[in-house]
């Protein structure tokens, strides 16, 4: 089918409009991050002079570099644990019959719609009492409780797509349930595992509420929370430009991740497994 010229133009114009709408704030941040000193008041979109000054400020401050280390560390740990647990849980949910199976999925969905802020205060008190306040573990635990349900949901959908015969064939071929899972099911669910991993990583990386309520020092404070503590060159100047620079820095890993794994997220690996 060939679309007529006018409809084609319509779609292209629409696409450009939406892309601009999404990208202008990003360009604005990038542009801000290159404005040195008082240049942010220049009333122009682009900086008068392109300068790396803000980036130097950002990397020179301990506040940012330790926060970056915290963010990277906690995101990786939380993502790994979350994906491993979610893979096992989702497999059980999609393949085994056990009482309360629907309840588990229902609760998982309910947790994802639960407002984060609602548990932040209770956790703050609880963590202070048991000594988890201002530690990595103290943040990783609530991260897991929010990312696991979503991962389980995504992965159980992927597992359901894999034909039962795959495992049965493996069992007949001499595999134990674990071997069938590891050698057949996990490779086939790889796109789902990557999707779940990326979603979890984003959620943890971008977290602000837990980061600001459950930390008090640089010991565990992640980047989004640390940005709020930035100070300007003097007490009276707003640190807008350095914050913009820091925001650009933390966006880069996310963009790289998406570019790296977008091929992996493409479903359809199960092509050719069965008749067709």
């Amino acid at each position: 089918m060939k679309a007529s010229r006018s409809t084609q133009l319509f779609w292209i114009a629409g696409a450009i409009l939406i892309i601009l709408y999404a990208l202008i704030p990003v360009f604005w941040i990038v542009s801000l991050s290159f404005k040195a000193g008082d240049d942010i008041t220049n009333k122009q979109f682009l900086p008068t002079v392109w300068s790396w000054e803000n980036y130097k400020t950002v990397f020179a401050s301990d506040l940012f570099t330790t926060a970056l280390r915290n963010s990277v560390g906690m995101s990786i740990i939380a993502t790994t644990i979350s994906v491993i647990l979610a893979t096992l849980a989702a497999y059980a949910i999609s393949r085994l019959e056990f009482p309360g199976k629907r309840l588990v999925l229902g609760v998982a969905l309910a947790i994802t719609v639960f407002p984060v802020i609602a548990i932040a205060t209770p956790l703050f008190n609880l963590w202070r009492t048991i000594g988890l306040y201002d530690t990595w573990l103290g943040l990783i635990i609530p991260y897991l409780s929010y990312s696991l349900p979503l991962s389980v949901y995504v992965l159980s959908a992927f597992f359901r797509e894999i034909p039962w015969e795959m495992e049965q064939a493996a069992q007949v071929d001499g595999a134990t349930a674990w071997q069938a899972f590891r050698r057949v099911i996990v490779p086939l669910a790889a796109p789902g595992v990557f999707t779940a991993a990326i979603l979890t990583f984003f959620a943890v990386w971008n977290d602000f509420v837990f980061g600001i309520t459950l930390t008090s020092s640089e010991a565990a404070r992640p980047v989004p929370a640390a940005l709020a503590f930035f100070q300007g060159a003097s007490q009276f100047s707003q640190p807008t430009a350095p914050i913009a620079a820091a925001a650009v820095v933390v966006t880069i890993p996310v963009v790289i991740l998406v570019l790296l794994f977008q091929r992996k997220i493409v479903a359809g690996l199960t092509n050719g497994a069965v008749k067709g």
Partner: peptide, 19 residues
């Protein structure tokens, strides 16, 4: 268990491992 019976089976939809 199936793996202890030492049989082999050809499934209707073949059930090949696509990866």
């Amino acid at each position: 268990a199936p793996r202890d019976r030492n049989l082999s089976m050809v499934f209707q939809n073949y059930a090949l491992y696509p990866h």
